[in-house]
Design a protein around this nucleic acid. Sequence first.
DNA 1: GTCTATAGCTAGATAGAC
DNA 2: GTCTATCTAGCTATAGAC
Lengths: 187, 187
Amino acid sequence: MRPQKIVDKDLLIALTSVFRAKGYEGTSLKELAEATGLKKASLYHRFPNGKQEMAESVFNYMAQWVEEHIFSALNDESFSPEVRLKNGLAQIKTLYAGGKEICILRALSMQAGMDLFEQNISIGLNKWINAFTGVGTALQLSPKKAKEKATQTLIEIQGSLILTKGLNDITIFEKSLQKIENRYLKT
Amino acid sequence: MRPQKIVDKDLLIALTSVFRAKGYEGTSLKELAEATGLKKASLYHRFPNGKQEMAESVFNYMAQWVEEHIFSALNDESFSPEVRLKNGLAQIKTLYAGGKEICILRALSMQAGMDLFEQNISIGLNKWINAFTGVGTALQLSPKKAKEKATQTLIEIQGSLILTKGLNDITIFEKSLQKIENRYLKT
DNA sequence: GTCTATAGCTAGATAGAC
DNA sequence: GTCTATCTAGCTATAGAC
């Protein structure tokens, strides 16, 4: 067995950045090959089901990252709810590179991707809502209020990412995160 | 001259619905031909620069619709600011089919589209912000507050469209519009 | 495990008849 | 103005050498 030219993790990171920037249909195997340093045939060796499997792997990789960094921060009961919220929001800022990066879920959800990922997107969004709902209840909100606030939080994260990108102004994303934090902590 | 099989307006409507659903790269000329009832070569007769011109025309058509229906409603000084706001939000609900349809601007902004439309997207978003800022000042907000509120409004519209689509729950979009209205009128 | 070479197809786009 | 037929380029995917 020849050694791998690039380990799985780095491979996934490279694939992620392309899919994130171009979407599913907008990404070609040629670009993926260039971004990873592997030839197309080698990509097929690593992902026998081709482009679709690459996108799915990217999706799963990001889902795991979110689980480990964001949800676990929001749910870490060894900290106060206030600290959990701050840590979670800080991780979210990292995930989106301060607003410069788009939501991978959204990048993959257009076009054919919608068919491929529709159910996983719904599941993923609900996990986000549940994570923020947990913080809300820890901050003494009623379950109903906590869920409403969590939904509103996600709306603002996604919406501010769109405006940040569309207006090319990362302060929009930063202000939104700050606003979200303030609104939780003022309760 | 042979008669047109489909008038410009209907043609644009048909093209719009495909681009909206599939994005720019995700849309093929075959699909556009099927959706319009014209053959590919006929589409090239109507849009000599091909797919890109079709997307640009769709973009301009939607921009005009928004101008005539939404901005003019928000800015119609023959009504009170409260009524202008309500009318504008009602038109927005129509534009997005109550949350079932995505923002065309967003659909075209991924992938190669980002290069094609980047500047127009920024201009378009700013027009939205200005329109809502106008309503805010008419409601006695300071210019600064009015612009902040307008930006927040757009964030929530875009974000709620994403969650509505991702969770397949149109009540999210409806609730967000209601919330936006309440927040303006409570000022 | 990675590579070169290529198959097979579909995309966007054009030529020219009617 | 619309059509059939076709071109070319690029795509996803595979075969087989190393």
